[in-house]
Amino acid sequence: MSIMEYNGGSVIAMVGKNCVAVASDLRLGNQALTVATNFEKVFPITDRIYLGMSGLATDVTTLRETFRYRVNMYTIKEERDIEPEAFAHLVSSTLYERRFGPFFIEPVIAGLSKTSSGAFRPYIAGADLIGCLNFAKDFVVAGTASEKMFGVAEGLWEPDLEPEDLFETISQTLLNSVDRDAYSGWGAIVHVITPEQVITRTLKARMD
């Protein structure tokens, strides 16, 4: 039994045309026993950045609170919102602080970064549990259903998806992957970030 699979759960992020999407399942388990079906693993960081975390649930909660604290302190000192690139490195260094006794989570970052011309560029990144960043151009996955999600996303994802199409792609990828994973599922939550707004939808899935 790996500690990364103790509570179960999966997260995924995808790039679209001028938008990004990030989603997670809602299960919290104790190995095979399901304890809660409302455990979100994606959290808003700013209006344009969301952070997903899969792995050990205690660390998901602790790190969510840690990142909220550090991002708030950054916002107070800098008097502006943090950009996705800077936040990714904040995540990386926070995880690497515990290089030899790590937090057992794999983060997934999705956001829109402001370019010098004032436009927005999609940004996603993943990392391992000690903060080695992985910048992807298409999608990143993490959690107990990650192998399945790699396969489904590889088949469904295409470049330059509009927000609604991206929503459909990420939802189908996650839902069909967690259906084949005993440790993930029990519904999902999806966030699509566009320059104007964030669309959040809770999905019903196979509730077994």
């Binding site: 609170e65 909220r68 604290y69 302190m73 107070i76």
Partner: peptide
């Protein structure tokens, strides 16, 4: 003001 903001964030961190 800086002290107050830090104190408020510490409380948020500790008690959510």
């Amino acid at each position: 003001v800086n002290y107050a903001r830090t104190a408020a964030q510490r409380h948020l961190f500790l008690y959510n």
